[in-house]
């Protein structure tokens, strides 16, 4: 018994270490950037950083659920663009549409996209990577098509719509506020509701989940729908923030989102992932994209740096896992 308590301590330590390490890394990075360019830790820049990270963290939370069920969703960039485009066209045609309705419209578009993907994955059994790759193209094409190949630019959008991203409530930017609310909702959902725990169960061991009477189809459709709804919301926020909707909005953004999850300790093999970790992962990427230009790193280097960090994170995770397994073997006395 005794050595098993040690064993569990070790694993728990490693899990904690990952989050603390991530936090430490973020702080270290911030200090380095600050030393090189004092403009980093100013109120204005931090506000920029947070608003920029808000959309990423909203999407990363949704992606976390998908990854926990052993799935993946590559279509979210396209869903985001489609919802943003449809909303932008609507508000430019009906200038007096209430911003809340615009947000609702965007979410609806996203939910429809998500349900389609959920059905393909759960009912027909297409691999998530292939189904979402196909839908990514479909949604992206539709975005171009509904936009007629044109942009919707700032002057076509009513001020009330643009103010979604710029307004603030109690001194906090609305985008950040929305992200915080979603974070809290997620924290509650995955930790304190039965459905939330069933998502982990399905990803941790699908066969056992079936025996325990968990409806897997329902869970899968649910996570892809949530992911779609969040992408739809993000689409509205994105278009409002950048005050333009284009056919190629957020191309490749799904990769950044998945990267945030992996950095935050979500396992692609399913069953593992914490909201706090994902948030830290998103913040790390936010600091990178905000800070690197400040220290004169070319913006074109960012993708390569991101790629390396992801690869290192993935390999670090597996190496730790292999080490723990080997230790378990060594501990077995013969």
């Amino acid at each position: 018994m005794k050595d098993n308590i040690l064993q569990s301590l070790n694993l728990e330590k490693i899990a904690k270490f990952r989050e603390l390490g991530l936090l430490g890394f973020i702080i270290l990075l911030a200090i380095i950037i600050q030393l090189l360019n004092p403009a980093f830790l100013t109120f204005g820049n931090l506000r920029d950083l947070l608003t920029n990270t808000a959309i990423l963290s909203i999407l990363a939370l949704g992606m976390m659920l998908v990854l926990i069920t052993r799935g993946i969703d590559l279509s979210i960039g396209a869903t985001l663009a489609l919802s943003g485009m449809i909303t932008a066209l609507t508000v430019s045609a009906y200038g007096n549409l209430h911003p809340l309705l615009a947000i609702l419209l965007g979410i609806m578009v996203g939910i429809i996209c998500g349900v389609i993907l959920g059905l393909l994955v759960s009912k027909i059994g297409i691999l998530p990577i292939i189904a979402s790759l196909g839908l990514m193209n479909v949604f992206r094409g539709l975005t171009f098509w509904v936009g007629g190949g044109e942009w919707v630019s700032a002057y076509q959008m009513p001020p009330s719509f643009k103010s979604i991203a710029t307004s603030s409530f109690l001194g906090i930017n609305t985008l950040v506020l929305i992200a915080v609310v979603i974070f809290l909702l997620f924290y509650y959902f995955v930790n304190n509701t039965i459905t939330g725990r069933q998502i982990y169960a399905v990803g941790s061991n699908p066969d056992s989940a079936r025996v325990s009477g968990i409806n897997q189809t329902k869970i899968l459709i649910l996570v892809y729908t949530i992911m779609g709804g969040l992408s739809g919301l993000a689409g509205v926020l994105w278009v409002s923030k950048f005050a333009s909707a284009q056919g190629d909005t957020a191309t490749g953004y799904e990769l950044t989102v998945i990267a945030a999850c992996i950095l935050g300790g979500v396992s692609i093999a399913g069953g593992v992932g914490k909201v706090t970790g994902v948030l830290l992962g998103a913040i790390l990427l936010g600091v990178l994209s905000n800070g690197l230009p400040l220290i004169n790193v070319s913006p074109f280097w960012q993708m390569g740096i991101e790629g390396m960090i992801i690869l290192i994170a993935v390999l670090f995770n597996t190496n730790v896992k292999m080490l723990v397994e080997k230790n378990n073997l060594l501990r077995r006395e013969i």
Partner: peptide
Amino acid sequence: VTNYPDLSITENIYMGHEKI
């Protein structure tokens, strides 16, 4: 043994009949 390797002992015991 059919269980959920990534979840805690408590969750494994109560999966399907959680206390609310």
